[in-house]
Amino acid sequence: MDCRDARKDLRRFGPEGLSGEVLRHAAACPRCAAEARGAALLRLGSGGFDGAARPRPGFAARVRAGIAVAAGEAATPRAPSRRNGGLRPRRAWSEAFDRLLRPALVCAATLALLAALLYARSASSPASADLATLAEDDSVLEALP
């Protein structure tokens, strides 16, 4: 038996296993041995050899129910959230927030930031007169020997 015949048998092999001839060939041919192990792995892992399996009774009804659920999800509007109590003005409120309040908040935040920057700048650079006053009035320095 050559490799070509062995491969043909490998494609057809079932629960009865391989013929002795193919097994002998595979024992002497590493490539066909690998092919045989691969074929065995595929058959074992692909549902064995049972060809009579059927879905459980009522399968069509379950499919129908699945379709109904999918259709319901597609058709039903999104349920109002509990957070806003399901009130319709939520949408109008959001729009008003986006149009008016959000820009106003951005402006206020910018102004606050500018004011903070100005204050920090003025506080970090004291006038020279202030420094002199500090040095003159420092009692700790004067108490030094």
Binding site: G45, S46, G47, A53, P55, R56, V63
Partner: peptide
């Protein structure tokens, strides 16, 4: 459905998955 189910069983061993 039997045809589709058997094909699915080839890939998904557990009948509930198939």
């Amino acid at each position: 459905s039997p045809r589709v189910f058997r094909l699915a069983l080839r890939f998904f061993r557990r009948p509930e998955d198939a």
